[in-house]
Nucleic acid binder design. Structure first.
Lengths: 124, 124
DNA sequence: CTTGCCTTTGACGTTAACGTCAACTTTTAC
DNA sequence: GTAAAAGTTGACGTTAACGTCAAAGGCAAG
């Protein structure tokens, strides 16, 4: 596959793919003319990359994780890193849930205020 | 309160507080000598700011939300914005949960491999 | 062969939320 | 009254993940 195909299949820009290659996140062979050629599974790989980015991992961390993500093989040290990131994710999700709850209560108050005809029972 | 007190109370740097003021997120009066003076509720406000930042909101958005967060008053348009952000948060949390699950299954596979004494039942 | 689209490398631009001096002035503590 | 600690403005630095030209070469179709 050429770069444009992979890009549209994975939903990213060609610029992003070149950037990923530079960060060692993906690899490519070259055509005789020098154009990048990818194997089809690159698309899946790129999707993983997007997921991990969205989860707040840096490209440096993703580079560490990707091999083990595909092979399912990891040394004890890598397992610890994986656990750490998973736990960080858990913490983050808890924080988000709390924030969401507070935002929701603000919303409830605002909606309640909005249902009052502007000044009903507003003062004593 | 002076800037240092607020900073340590809220767990941010003084630089951050000056930045927030520049972004209109917080306000301050000045001492005769020109030093910033804050009311105690600024601490709470800064905590809110941190929460919303962590939730992925930009300072521009936070500036819109903060008044209504404190007063509980919002026009219909603001209520729509609040709902939109809450929903975005929900979506994001779902994505994170999915990613966490996939990461966890990778971990499970890796841990399983690690419990095998290196080559037991690995090949047929 | 040539038109038109795709790709390549190189390099500068962008954005957000601060970090980090530097050179001073204010406050505080003794 | 005098250090030391804390604060002030101004301005440049940082980082990540790309965006956006620019100039030039590759590639399938007719």
């Amino acid at each position: 596959m050429r770069i444009g195909e992979v890009a549209s299949a994975a939903g990213v820009s060609t610029r992003a793919l070149r950037y990923y290659e530079q960060q060692q996140l993906i690899a490519s062979s070259r055509s005789t003319g020098g154009q990048r050629l990818y194997t089809p599974d690159t698309v899946e790989r790129v999707r993983w990359i997007q997921l991990l980015y969205a989860a707040g991992l840096s490209s440096r961390t993703i580079v560490e994780f990707l091999p083990c993500v595909h092979t399912g093989i990891a040394g004890p040290e890598m397992i610890a890193r994986l656990r750490a990131e998973r736990d960080r994710l858990d913490d983050h999700m808890r924080d988000l849930a709390a924030t969401r709850a507070r935002l929701d209560s603000v919303l409830a108050a605002a909606e309640f205020g909005a249902t009052r005809p502007a000044g009903e029972a507003a003062e004593v």
